[in-house]
C-alpha cells in the first residue's frame, strides 16, 4: 500500500482504446469475474467507449490499446494517445504484432484489396503492424485473445508501483507441467517450443496444436523448429504460412519470411 501511495496519490485512471480489431481483448476485460470489481475499485476507468457514454480525452495514467494499425489515421491517433499516456500497453496480439490483420502484408496487396472491395479506392489501408512500430510501448500483453490473468497481473503490478515482468518461458513449460501428451512428438506442427507461454497451454491441453498466437520468444530456437517441421515432411511454404498467422511481423521470424512491402 505504501508503494501505491508513493506512485499514485489517488486512483490511477485507465483508458481503453481500440484500433483495427475484433474487440475480443476489450471483451476479455468484461469477462473477468471478481477481478473486474477489483479493477473498478482500484482504477478510474475514464475511457472505455464500447461500454460507457462519458469518455475522457486524457491525460491518462495507464492506457491499453487493442488492435493493429492499418490506416494513416490510426497512426495519427496512436501518436496522440502516446503523448497523453504515462504508461502505454499493447493489449493483445494485434496491438503487439499486427495479428491476423497483418497476414495481408505477406500477400499481393492489390489482389487482396480487389478480392474484397469492388472499388478498392474506398479503402485506405496501409501495411498492418503492431503499435510499437509507431510509438514507444511500455508493456505488451500478448495473446489472441489477451490472457486475462496476465492483464490483471500487469495492472496490479503497476498499481503497487512494481515493474511488470515479461513471461520468458515457452508454452511447452506449462504444457509439460500439466503432463500433457506432446503433440510435437506425435508429429504435429505445434509451435509450443517457440511461443511465449502464460496461456496455461490452453490449446495443447485440449488436443489442439499451438498456433503461436502469443508470438515467438526472443531466444526461441526457431531454426530447430523449422528443421523438425521439415523432417516431418512439411514444406517450407507451409511452415511460412504457420508463422504468418498471428505474429508474422515479428523480427524473430524475419529470417524465415521475406516481407513484401
Amino acid at each position: 500500500m505504501l508503494k501505491r501511495e508513493k506512485r499514485y496519490r489517488k486512483k490511477p485512471n485507465l483508458a481503453i482504446y481500440s484500433l483495427t480489431s475484433c474487440a475480443g481483448c476489450q471483451f476479455s476485460l468484461l469477462f473477468l469475474k471478481d477481478e473486474l470489481v477489483d479493477i473498478l475499485n482500484n482504477f478510474d476507468v475514464v475511457r472505455f467507449p464500447m461500454v460507457q457514454e462519458i469518455n475522457d480525452i486524457g491525460p491518462f495514467d495507464i492506457t491499453l490499446v487493442e488492435g493493429s494499425v492499418t490506416t494513416k489515421k490510426e497512426i495519427k491517433e496512436l501518436k496522440d494517445i502516446r503523448k497523453k499516456s504515462k504508461i502505454l500497453i499493447a493489449f493483445g496480439t494485434c496491438a503487439t504484432y499486427g495479428g491476423i490483420p497483418a497476414i495481408k502484408n505477406f500477400l499481393d496487396i492489390t489482389e487482396v484489396e480487389e478480392e474484397v472491395y469492388e472499388n478498392p479506392a474506398v479503402i485506405r489501408s496501409i501495411r498492418a503492424t503492431g503499435i510499437s512500430d509507431h510509438v514507444k510501448v511500455d508493456y505488451f500483453i500478448r495473446g489472441c485473445p489477451a490472457i486475462r490473468e496476465e492483464t490483471v497481473r500487469i495492472l496490479k503490478d503497476l498499481l503497487v508501483g512494481k515493474r511488470p515482468k515479461q513471461i520468458d518461458v515457452p508454452v511447452c513449460y506449462e504444457c509439460r507441467a500439466k503432463g500433457n501428451e506432446c503433440l510435437l512428438q506425435k508429429g504435429e506442427p505445434c509451435m509450443g517450443p517457440i511461443t511465449y507461454g502464460g496461456c496455461d497451454a490452453v490449446c495443447p491441453t485440449r488436443g489442439i496444436i499451438c498456433h503461436g498466437c502469443r508470438g515467438p520468444l526472443p531466444d526461441a530456437n526457431i531454426a530447430m523448429e523449422v528443421k523438425l517441421f521439415r523432417e516431418y515432411g512439411i514444406k517450407m511454404k507451409d511452415i511460412k504460412r504457420f508463422f504468418r498467422m498471428f505474429a508474422g511481423t515479428s523480427r524473430f521470424f524475419a529470417k524465415y519470411l521475406e516481407t513484401k512491402k
Binding site: C22, G24, G99, I100, I103, L107, V112, C144, M245
Partner: peptide, 25 residues
C-alpha cells in the same frame, strides 16, 4: 480499418480457416 478476411483465408489449409474467421468478431 479493413481486415480483408475474404482474401486472407485464401491459400490457407482447410483446418486453419475457422481460426481466422473466428477473429471477425
Amino acid at each position: 480499418g479493413a481486415r480483408f478476411f475474404e482474401a486472407i483465408v485464401r491459400g490457407r489449409k482447410y483446418d486453419e480457416v475457422s481460426i481466422l474467421t473466428s477473429r471477425i468478431c
